[in-house]
Amino acid sequence: MLTILAAVFVFGVLVTVHEFGHFITAKLTGMRVDEFAIGFGPKLYQQKDGDTLYSLRAIPLGGYNKIAGMDPDDPPEPGTFKSKPIPSRMLVILAGALMNFLLPIILFSGIFMLEGRQELVNEPILGTVVDGMAAERAGLRNGDRILTINNKPVATWTEVVTNLRASGTNPVTLTADSQGAVKSYTMTPVYD
């Protein structure tokens, strides 16, 4: 069931982005868009803004734009699809596919930007110091930032783990920033 809902959601996002490409390029090239709809079937919500009716439909598996002048029977009136030059019409037609091409690029570049910030999340700051465990017995507290292990600077949790594993169960000397004061601690790691 969850897989089906996820597929419906992803398909809905793809269709919405695709239709938004047609919509925004039609607006930018001066074409009248009579309706921009997300989904199909009965209308759940609608609002008119200018010449465009925006609607949300009950079945989230589609969507469409009603661009004035795209129907072969429509006359070529000013501001319609047929009244615009061929490059503008081509741009509107191709914009849906272009948006579907750009969507993963934008999403993945956003993920890579977040990974660049991962170092902030990966800072060696103690969250919860467990009662009775090695860090608590050494005197470390929640929020302490580990600066060095055996005089070797550490900047990430990965480095903390690597250094502690290398020491085995031998005592290590840590320096940590504890509420603005740099303190030294001796801790004997425990294999778990």
Rank of each mutant, 00 (worst) to 15 (best):
G69K: 01
P87D: 14
D49R: 15
I111F: 13
S184M: 13
N163K: 11
N142D: 09
D131W: 02
I93C: 13
A181R: 05
N142I: 04
E119W: 07
L2M: 12
M90Y: 08
E35S: 07
L91Y: 02
L164Y: 04
P42C: 06
S55N: 08
I67K: 08
P153G: 02
N142G: 01
R145L: 01
E19L: 02
P42W: 03
V190M: 14
L174N: 02
L91A: 07
R165N: 15
D49W: 14
A97T: 12
F11H: 03
S109N: 00
G116E: 09
A97N: 08
T16G: 11
L120N: 01
S55M: 11
F11V: 15
L53P: 13
D34I: 01
K66E: 09
M70L: 12
A134R: 10
V13T: 11
T128D: 09
R145K: 08
I106S: 13
M90D: 03
G41A: 10
V130R: 00
R137Y: 04
L14N: 06
N142C: 02
D144L: 01
E119Q: 14
G69F: 11
V8F: 01
A176C: 05
G180E: 07
R117T: 13
K183R: 08
S55A: 14
P75F: 12
F9W: 04
I125C: 07
G180C: 06
D49N: 15
D34N: 09
G180P: 04
I24A: 08
A26G: 03
V154K: 02
V33R: 02
T169Q: 10
F112A: 11
Y54G: 14
T148N: 10
F108C: 12
F23A: 11
D192N: 14
I105P: 08
D144A: 06
V8R: 02
L103H: 03
T29R: 15
V121D: 01
Q47A: 10
Y45A: 12
L102P: 07
I38R: 11
V17F: 12
I105E: 06
T25H: 08
G39R: 05
L147H: 10
M90V: 13
